[in-house]
Design a protein around this nucleic acid. Structure first.
Length: 493
RNA sequence: GGCCCCUUCGUCUAAUCGGUUAGGACACCAGCCUUUCAAGCUGGCAGCAGGGGUUCGAAUCCCCUAGGGGUCACCA
């Protein structure tokens, strides 16, 4: 504990820009971030873009946007810089080559000319013998003359690091304890590819060291990679960071989360109308708990309570319903002004309002959102529930029409409602509530007939926000016009 | 298949060194509230994967079995 305090905690999240940031990545990033903030340490973003083919700037920008949207800030990394940069692996080639040169000189790595076909043949042979596929070590003992001759002929080559053939490597994991691996199951890993770029296992080790990373917190899928990285680190003479492998997030069918399971990227959740704080709170609960019955937590509370010791070992199945529930909670408790800002893009996208209205009718939009947000769970539902405040040409619920309009006396009732509303002294929620109560008393028609009929006439629906504030917001003119229209459209007499 | 990890309600999880009527949350069901639907409140349903040990006592420690997941690339 004391030793931990002496050294500033430095953690990193190292996405490769080959796709959108997905929720598994966010959860890993979040745990890193919480751990850093809890320890007054630094959270570093590093771009693992050594796969030239698949990496793209578009994805990097999208990932950074997702981080910004989630409000997860990084102390060092792209755009903010830092004293251990550059933070893109594609710009750190000189570091890797320097280290490879050293390994080569020390005889801890060697040049390998084996072709893909040769390697495949080797693997095939191993398989047929019932053994695990393993590199034969054919090029380990090439002489310097062999090597320069082959290079001169233009053969392509890679650099491999030498792995001990016996003994074992122990990964001391903060979450799982000591995990033992026999060295004989590993072959000599490629550290520099034939395109001259480092492989993940090498670049990652070099960067973690050069960036003074103290804790490597990553998904469990990397656990079996860790001994290979430790072996490389050993060859390089590095001191090892602490490791913590967090459990994976699984789809409801217990398989690995993928596109076919629906939304997987942060961007998709954003488009669905999920709030960033809800997503983070939910993700924090997947594989971690503060220990007591606490579930809804602000970022400040999560920072305060987070510890790796309380991260669980077993994979967590992802449950959309609980996320939605949490989102509803945050939606209701957030300020109307903020939710309105966030809902506007959804209203625009569904053509419920125009750009012009955004600038000219902000107050009305806020009033609508304020009324409607109590009943919904996502921002896109806000849009859906707001339609009739801005459009007169909505469709009427068919079952509702049968039940409330196509009955004897329905027209009479609507007329009476109209008259009462016309005479109402003020068109406020309180006044309207009184108006309806009086009407019910006078006509002997119960409120549970008057109210739904009014709602149906005015909104086309049977459900929605409280009726009286709804009517008040719509205004006398629109309400009366809509009741007239419904009467003309549906009533028998 | 080899190696590695994991196993508490349907799902996420709690239960400090072994002693709890195994707790909470989502979902589901019922009731209350109510002008609707939600929300909220109250209550209910539901779990220690199986089998052996160790122990006065095991969800908790050990072993085995089963199941799930990961990994074995010139992807990260």
């Amino acid at each position: 504990m004391l030793r931990k305090m002496q050294q500033t905690v430095r953690v990193r999240f190292a996405p490769s820009p080959t796709g959108e940031l997905h929720i598994g990545g966010v959860r890993t990033a979040l745990f890193n971030w919480l751990f850093a903030r809890n320890n007054n340490g630094q959270f570093i973003l590093r771009v693992d873009d050594t796969d030239k083919q698949r990496s793209s700037e578009i994805y990097l920008q999208s990932i950074l946007n997702s981080f910004r949207w989630l409000n997860l800030d990084w102390d060092e990394g792209p755009e903010v810089g830092g004293s251990y940069g550059p933070y893109r692996q594609s710009e750190r080639l000189n570091f890797y080559l320097e280290e490879v040169e050293r390994l080569l000189e020390q005889g801890k790595a060697y040049t390998c000319f084996c072709t893909a076909e040769e390697l495949e043949a080797d693997r095939e042979k191993c398989r047929s013998l019932g053994q695990p596929p393993r590199y034969s070590g054919r090029c380990r003992n090439l002489t310097p003359d062999d090597i320069s001759a082959k290079k001169k002929k233009g053969f392509s080559y890679v650099i491999r690091a030498i792995t001990p053939e016996s003994g074992e490597t122990v990964v001391d994991d903060l979450i799982r304890g000591k995990v033992f691996f026999e060295n004989k199951v590993f072959d000599d890993p490629i550290i520099i590819k034939s395109d001259g770029l480092p492989t993940y296992n090498f670049a990652s080790v070099v960067d973690d060291h050069k960036m003074k990373i103290t804790h490597v917190i990553r998904a469990e899928e990397h656990l079996s990679n860790t001994p290979r990285q430790q072996i490389i680190a050993l060859q390089l003479g590095y001191e090892l960071p602490s490791y913590a492998h967090v459990p994976m997030i699984l789809a409801p069918d217990h398989s690995k989360l993928s596109k076919r399971h629906g939304a997987t990227s942060v961007q998709e959740y954003r488009d669905l109308g999920i709030l960033p704080e809800a997503l983070l709170n939910y993700l924090a609960l997947l594989g971690w708990s503060p220990g007591h019955d606490r579930e809804i937590m602000s970022m400040a509370e999560m920072i305060e309570l987070f510890s790796l010791e309380r991260v669980s070992k077993n994979p967590a199945v992802y449950d959309m319903q609980k996320l939605i529930w949490l989102n509803g909670h945050y939606l209701r408790n957030a300020s109307t002004v903020r939710i309105t800002e966030m809902a506007i893009p959804f209203l625009l996208k569904e053509s419920i309002i125009s750009e012009e209205q955004v600038s000219q009718e902000k107050e009305k939009i806020e009033a609508v959102v304020g009324l409607v947000k109590e009943k919904v769970k996502t921002l896109s539902e806000i849009a859906e529930a707001s339609v009739y405040f801005f459009h007169d040409d909505f469709v009427y619920d068919q079952a509702g029409v049968e039940k409330h309009f196509k009955k004897d006396g329905a027209a009479q009732m609507l007329i009476q409602i109209e008259e009462a509303l016309q005479k109402a002294s003020a068109f406020s929620a309180e006044e309207l509530e009184k108006t309806f109560a009086d009407l019910s008393k006078k006509t002997q028609i119960p409120l549970n007939k008057i109210n739904p009929a009014t709602r149906l006439a005015v909104t086309g629906r049977l459900m929605g926000p409280d009726l009286f504030p709804l009517l008040a917001l719509l205004g006398r003119e629109k309400v009366l016009a809509r009741i007239k229209k419904a009467r003309a459209l549906f009533c028998l007499d």
